[in-house]
């Protein structure tokens, strides 16, 4: 199979724009040369990858405009040949490109917009799990509470932003002119409820508590995080209120 393998490597090299003798394997005809025939595949390759990137980063595209987004896609395709089986996984290195490639690396809000879109894409088809029945809390014995850990829905992402990236994302989603970039530290959660992706901002106490839960901390660690925001005697009530909110919003799928 060495001959077939060499041909395939040469053909793929041609698609990737690398030096290749692919043309030597192909017959020319009066209406189309070997190079023209190969060119159909080469242009199709880039078009398909661009379609995948456009699908995954609709808002980033809207923010950058057609020309700059096209420049971004070309840079991405040149740097990252696809090692993914499915096109839905092709864009997974976009954060690397935005961090390391000018002019995009000089615009830090792009990295936050990218994370937001990735979080929504992830929430769309993350694993299903039945939401936790709120009645579970009632049957939990008092001694089980301190060591209780939450199993959060696989679709859930917590995003820390330094800029007003969510308001920019929201405006782009509504085809509105986005606000100017501003420093606006905030934390957001993206998750799926009843098959619909949702998002909301988290106040500082809830952001810290949810981060503890997401990182596998138990209920006593969650309460400890709330001590930075509330008087000691208020913490248990605050913690249970947050827990009930997350359960109502279908962010929690189990207790461990």
């Amino acid at each position: 199979m060495q001959a077939l393998r060499r041909m395939q490597q040469s053909f793929l090299g041609h698609l990737l724009g690398r030096p290749s003798d692919a043309v030597d394997y192909i017959q020319s005809t009066p209406e189309a040369s070997a190079a023209q025939r190969l060119g159909i595949y080469a242009s199709g390759y880039r078009l398909r990858l661009k379609e995948a990137l456009e699908t995954d980063y609709e808002r980033l595209h809207a923010y950058l405009g057609d020309d700059l987004f096209d420049q971004l896609m070309d840079a991405y395709i040149d740097r990252f040949p696809s090692h993914a089986t499915s096109l839905r996984d092709y864009s997974r290195h976009m954060d690397v490109l935005l961090r390391e490639t000018l002019p995009f690396s000089g615009i830090p809000v792009l990295r936050e917009l990218e994370r937001i879109e990735r979080a929504f894409n992830h929430s769309f088809d993350a694993a299903d799990a039945a939401p936790l029945d709120p009645a579970c809390l009632e049957s939990l014995p008092p001694e089980a509470w301190p060591g209780m850990r939450l199993e959060l829905h696989a679709s859930l992402s917590v995003l820390d932003c330094a800029f007003n990236s969510f308001p920019i994302w929201r405006a782009l989603s509504r085809d509105e002119v986005p606000p100017e970039v501003a420093h606006e530290p905030s934390t957001w959660v993206v998750w799926r409820k009843d098959l619909v992706s949702l998002y909301r901002s988290l106040p500082p106490d809830e952001a810290d508590a949810l981060a503890v839960a997401r990182d596998g901390g138990d209920f006593s660690a969650l309460c400890e995080a709330l001590l930075a925001h509330h008087a000691e005697q208020e913490v248990p009530v605050q913690a249970v209120t947050l827990l009930r909110t997350w359960i109502d919003e279908q962010m929690v799928v189990g207790l461990a």
């Binding site: 077939l4 490597q9 394997y25 199709g44 995948a52 040949p81 696809s82 096109l87």
Partner: peptide
């Protein structure tokens, strides 16, 4: 569609010969 674990995401044709058939 792929070689060396690099995917063209396209349906690429094969040479029609005995070696390819056996493979």
């Amino acid at each position: 569609t792929s070689v060396d674990h690099t995917n063209s995401h396209d349906l690429l044709p094969l040479p029609y010969n005995e070696a390819t058939i056996a493979h």
